[in-house]
Simulated assay, not measured.
Amino acid sequence: MKFKLIALDLDGTTIDRRLYLSDANRDAVNDAIRQGSIVAIITGKMFAAALPFAERFQGAAYLFASNGANVYDIRLQQELISFPIRAEHLPQIIHTIEKHRALYRIYTRDAMFAAEESHLVDSIRRDYPDLPVFVGPIPLNKTYYKIFVQDDDAKLAAITQDLQGLPLQIHPSDNHNIEITNAQANKGEALRFLKQHLQIATENVLAIGNHDNDMPMFAEAGYAVAVANAPAYVQKRVHMVTRPCEENGVAFALAQLGICRMDSII
């Protein structure tokens, strides 16, 4: 099966919870690129955190960060489009999250902000030591692309309900979290834009992901693959379920579909 465009999620799909990219997954994606597939990394990660991972592939062409809020041509080193959270909605969003006493962090293109110290801040400092991190009152004069909220499910449901009237995308990307972006910043819109930009038909697109925020991307692909660690409701929406992320699921799927050499997964 030949696909001209491969849309690839990172966290929980291509890299594991330790942010580890296996040799097998890297080599399989590189082999697909050598054989002519265009690879687009479409991730919930903020731009500054995602770009170093995208650049570990030899020839990945596009990066869609913060679920498509930043659309970047890697080869041209040029941002194509961006969809920040609208500034007039920020006070209401932040007030709503803080009213429910939920933990959150908020991203510009290249820095992270948080209202207070927490494990959410500690994990960013640990995993991305070069990323600027600011803790304190959230400055409202910045351009923000995504808000990550993590807490118990009841709080997340209440926040989602309270923000229903705003033009936002709100998706879980893992257990006990939600990601808030501009209404136009979701992985499906990102992939639709890229198909039109490259004039590639839907049937020539493969998408591989693992969670709720990947389902809009699956809907824009001719063939959708979920790793086996994806929730059951996500697995039901795809054409193929591959091995778990920790067992080189991306490499296995590409090999099974004839996109890379089978020895890439060994």
Rank of each mutant, 00 (worst) to 15 (best):
K2V: 03
L5K: 05
A7T: 06
D9L: 06
G12W: 04
T14W: 07
I15F: 15
I15N: 09
L21H: 04
L21W: 05
S22Q: 07
A28Q: 05
V29E: 00
Q35R: 15
I38V: 11
I38E: 04
A40Q: 02
A40I: 02
T43S: 13
M46I: 10
F47Y: 07
A49Y: 00
A54H: 09
R56A: 03
A60D: 06
N67R: 15
N70W: 02
N70A: 02
V71C: 01
Y72F: 12
I74G: 02
L80H: 01
L80Q: 01
L80E: 00
P84T: 01
I85T: 02
A87P: 02
I93H: 10
H95P: 06
R101Q: 15
R101G: 12
L103I: 00
Y107S: 11
F113L: 12
F113E: 08
A115V: 09
E116P: 00
S118C: 04
D122Q: 13
R125Q: 15
R125S: 14
D127H: 04
D130E: 14
P132A: 08
G136F: 09
I138Y: 04
P139N: 14
L140A: 13
T143C: 10
K146A: 14
I147T: 15
V149I: 11
D151H: 09
D153L: 15
L156G: 15
A157G: 06
D162C: 10
D162V: 04
L163W: 06
L163M: 12
L166N: 08
H171S: 11
D174F: 11
H176V: 01
I178T: 09
A185N: 07
L191Y: 10
F193D: 00
A201E: 02
T202C: 08
T202H: 10
N204I: 00
A207L: 02
A207R: 05
A207G: 13
G209C: 09
H211R: 00
N213S: 13
D214V: 01
A219I: 05
G222E: 02
Y223W: 08
A230C: 03
Y233S: 05
M240Q: 14
V241A: 08
E246K: 15
E247C: 00
A251T: 04
F252L: 12
A253L: 05
A253V: 10
L254D: 07
L254N: 03
L257F: 12
R261Y: 11
R261A: 15
R261C: 12
I265H: 05
